[in-house]
Design a binder for these strands. Structure first.
Lengths: 327, 327
DNA sequence: GACGCATCATCAATTTTTCCGATAGCGCTC
DNA sequence: GAGCGCTATCGGAAAAATTGATGATGCGTC
């Protein structure tokens, strides 16, 4: 029996689609169909009910899926154990990041990871926050990079960074010159904010309320890029994580103003399934995220750093564990 | 990755031989070699040290083997669960029986099993008792049929039959006419017995000692067939399980005499690995062994029957469970 | 310590399996 | 009910496992 076929079956089930799973596996839809059929033939039982759209699992399929899910996980762990013995880091790490984390920072981390562990494969996706959680929960990704990380249930999270929130204003705005202001000075400004379904919107609302400041919301977007564009054209001011506007500030397209009397930060975290032990490769990726010195600079406040995840008992030779790559 | 390759690797390790494992799997030695090499290449690690004869596992191989052993077992269970859903009994049952059980009785049981479950594969081997235990312990067989079953450690046993021991004499012997005698009458007879390493020999010795009877041992054999031949040619008398001499007694080649004042029996048991759940097919085979009505007749004493192993919650249609095959 | 035996690796040829692309059929949605 | 998206099916192509022959190596034996 081909374990690849089992893996494919599980992916078909997870995605509720043969074609999606086939594409993800880099094979043709036809091949995916045949692979699952081979499994069904071997068992002499229908696993998937294709007469429904989207497809559904049969009772047998349910049982088989549950079992194979664990089986594949076990197999991965076994291989990992052997590979660890020789300090090899291989396998695939699937990372899903929210747009505002991903586009700005992940490139550098990914490069570093690929440089240190050329044998490992890194899949990076930039998604909507909800989709990141879905993937983690559905076991379609190993690590999720999100802001205001949720915990509990089958989710566990690792604290990663705390990004200071700054006021962002058009470069010709009255406040553009100031390096620091008090929150109260924002009151009544035209404001470009996040849409209400986003956690960060609710956090900012709460912060403003606590400071007894209210603003005039003129636009709402569900992503930072659009907010920045709106501020650039003078639609209003915004409150955004400092690292996400650094490039525009340096280029002069936007101005940032620190808020002197509050410590608003956007916490970023790495979420993963609680019960699933991370693969060595995944652990190493987390390690790179956490060990990065830039991050230490960026996380402006004195919050304790997340402790190192990876503990390798017997790494004697100079492997990556403690290594720093010069920026 | 091919699960077959993993299975093959495990078999190679268990047998400490590529060629043996290849033969057992029904493939060429070349193929076996390449299959294991494929695994090693995938892991980038040597699993087996071929420079030793017989081959040895490397540290990586040790880890991999332990993991894969369980993995294969898990996979088997998963498939079994699915198959059970549709009342299918497939898969392989490997049975190792001691000669004296096997040759006489197993044919009928095997036939019955193959008739009831044509999709399942039954491997029957007749071996020396020690070898039966080795196979069970080494996980090379699912069920072992032995006399005086050992328990404990990783072994578990199911009571199967208690065969009454009878005195067997040449057909022209002075006692040949009697249907019953007292044990004391054996005293001083020329006796053909088992070799000392066999459990049954030690049991008989103990019984004779308890009855304060001693005999004149003229020959020792490690199997029942040879003992019968020796008795046939008049070398002496023997004490053997009744079912094993029934054919010769009916044919007139030997005479059997019941022992009136003792209840000596040879217990037969089904041994298997304790922690390993039996496959459905294996359970059904056990069921056939236990449900047989002949066995009830043969087990002369009133010892409680082993309870039925198999419990299938949802078998509604008239499947084999309760079915009896007329003798 | 050389010989023979058993065992395993290697190689090219062949068989078997898998995979692909095109096409047809079917369910779902509008 | 037409259109769209999805999956099964089919023949041919590609990839893979398997084989048989041959060579290398460890191990016991004389």
């Amino acid at each position: 029996m081909h374990l690849n076929h089992v893996e494919l079956f599980c992916d078909v089930v997870a995605r509720r689609s043969f074609s999606k799973a086939a594409e993800a596996a880099g094979i043709s839809q036809s091949s995916a169909s045949q692979a699952v059929q081979a499994l069904e033939e071997r068992l002499g039982a229908q696993l998937i009910d294709r007469s429904k759209r989207p497809l559904e699992l049969t009772a047998a399929g349910e049982i088989y899926f549950d079992g194979c899910r664990d089986l594949l996980e076990s197999f991965r762990r076994i291989e990992d154990r052997v590979l660890q013995l020789q300090d090899k880091v291989t396998g695939r790490v699937r990372v899903a990041a929210i747009y505002s984390v991903g586009l700005l920072q992940m490139g550098a981390y990914a490069g570093r990871f690929r440089e240190l562990y050329p044998d490992a494969e890194l899949d990076l996706d930039y998604l909507h926050p909800d989709e990141v959680y879905n993937r983690v929960l559905g076991d379609e990704t190993d690590l999720g990079l999100v802001s205001f990380p949720r915990e509990g249930g089958s989710l566990s999270s690792i604290r990663w960074q705390d990004q200071p929130m700054v006021l962002v204003v058009p470069s010709r705005h009255a406040l553009a010159g100031s390096s620091k202001i008090r929150v109260a000075e924002i009151a009544g400004e035209n404001y470009v904010g996040f849409t209400e379904e986003l956690t960060i919107r609710r956090a900012i609302d709460r912060w403003l309320r606590q400071s007894h400041v209210s603003v005039n919301v003129v636009h709402e977007f569900d992503n930072i890029e659009n907010i920045k564009r709106a501020v650039e054209i003078g639609a209003g001011v915004a409150i955004l994580p400092e690292p996400t506007v650094r490039r525009e500030v340096e280029a002069g397209a936007l101005s940032q103003v620190r808020l002197a009397d509050v410590r608003w930060t956007r916490p970023l975290g790495i979420v993963h399934r609680r019960n699933k032990t991370l693969s060595t490769a995944a652990s190493r990726f987390v390690e790179i995220l956490l060990s990065d010195e830039d991050a230490a600079v960026e996380s402006g406040n004195g919050a304790p750093r997340a402790s190192r995840l990876h503990k390798n008992g017997k790494s004697a030779n100079g492997r990556a564990s403690g290594r720093r790559v010069p920026r």
